[in-house]
């Protein structure tokens, strides 16, 4: 049920774009799960590509295969025109930057010492001062890593990924667990890198992050891509752009709700109903009338524009952060 990319103005046209990263038929099995289950991807040079999905979808496993850290059981990976099994692995590593989801950098060394260490691994790259400035850690340059806040640590992790001046940057859930302020300041770093012409593959389970940062998004679930396109295309693919969420005193049969005019989709979770609708002006009065007819009463009702979250719900029947 993958949603095909339609050629609108927003999408990057494959014909005119250089491919920075391509993989085909990736499969990775662990003892009891198939973490990646036949995955194809193409990321174009200069774009920010988002891999969006709930915890356990297989995002990290996918990214680590692409980074050449985990061997795939099946499939092909090509990045920047090279493959991981070549003899030139180190040359390829010179050209990519990596931030891993779980790395905790050594706590007893300072910011500047950490960056100097990572810088020493690369033949060419940015100066330490440039990178510190990019991630706005000037005031913390001599602070020990252990003394940094979560957001500062994460910016340092990204700085370590940037210090070799990569063409392709991998960010695995760079803002998970950060407060909104820290998230904004990390988004700035991503923006700066993009302005410099870099390519990004990032994973996230935050919709608003994907919408804000990514040119194109692949929605991933159970090791597969279930939708692909620009955020706008994906939202439009719902065939609707409004969502009504409500709660009532006594349950209403699902058939009665999906039969209402302008309603395209229903998602119910316990007491909470969520209707995807084409025209709010038509659907809302009809819904209220139906509730009344069933002699139920509204407890609460909100409406909002459709988001990527709603796309995920309509594709899987689950909320993104439920799992």
């Amino acid at each position: 049920m993958a949603t095909q990319t339609s050629s609108t103005e927003q999408s990057v046209s494959p014909a005119t774009q250089r491919v920075a990263l391509r993989c085909e038929g990736l499969v990775k099995r662990f003892a009891d799960v198939t973490a990646v289950n036949g995955l194809d991807l193409e990321v174009f040079a200069g774009e920010c590509f988002g891999l969006l999905g709930p915890n356990g979808a297989g995002k990290t496993t996918t990214v680590e295969i692409l980074e050449g850290l985990t061997p795939a059981d099946e499939g092909k990976v090509e990045l920047l025109g090279q493959q991981w099994n070549s003899n030139d692995e180190r040359a390829l590593r010179e050209r990519i930057g990596v931030q891993l989801q779980e790395t905790q950098l050594a706590e007893k060394v300072t910011v500047i010492e950490t960056l100097r260490l990572f810088r020493s691994f690369y033949k060419r790259g940015h100066s330490i001062d440039e990178v510190i400035q990019t991630v706005a850690l000037e005031e913390k340059r001599d602070a020990r890593v252990g003394k940094l806040s979560g957001g500062q640590k994460q910016r340092l992790a990204v700085a370590c990924a940037l210090v070799g001046d990569p063409e392709l940057l991998f960010l695995d859930e760079p803002t998970t667990g950060l407060d909104p302020q820290a998230r904004l300041s990390l988004w700035d770093v991503v923006d700066k890198f993009r302005k410099g012409g870099g390519t990004i593959l990032l994973t996230t389970h935050y919709m608003e992050e994907a919408t804000r940062l990514c040119d194109r998004v692949a929605i991933m679930d159970h090791g597969k891509i279930i939708a692909l396109g620009t955020p706008l295309e994906l939202i439009e693919s719902l065939g609707a752009d409004q969502i009504i969420e409500f709660r009532v005193t006594s349950p209403i049969p699902e058939g009665a709700l999906t039969g209402l005019p302008a309603v395209t989709h229903l998602h119910r979770r316990g007491e909470d109903y969520s209707l995807t609708v084409r025209e709010m002006g038509v659907a809302l009065p009809a819904l209220l009338a139906e509730i009344k007819r069933r002699q139920s009463e509204l407890v609460s009702l909100t409406t909002h524009e459709a988001t990527l979250e709603d796309v995920f719900v309509s594709l899987t029947g689950r909320m993104l952060r439920e799992t």
């Binding site: 980074e67 891993l100 790395t103 050594a106 990572f118 690369y122 370590c160």
Partner: peptide, 17 residues
């Protein structure tokens, strides 16, 4: 410790020998 904190993996992702 470096392995359990994924620092080894992080180093392996760089061109470090």
């Amino acid at each position: 410790i470096a392995r359990s904190r994924k620092i080894l993996k992080r180093f392996a992702a760089t061109p470090m020998r």
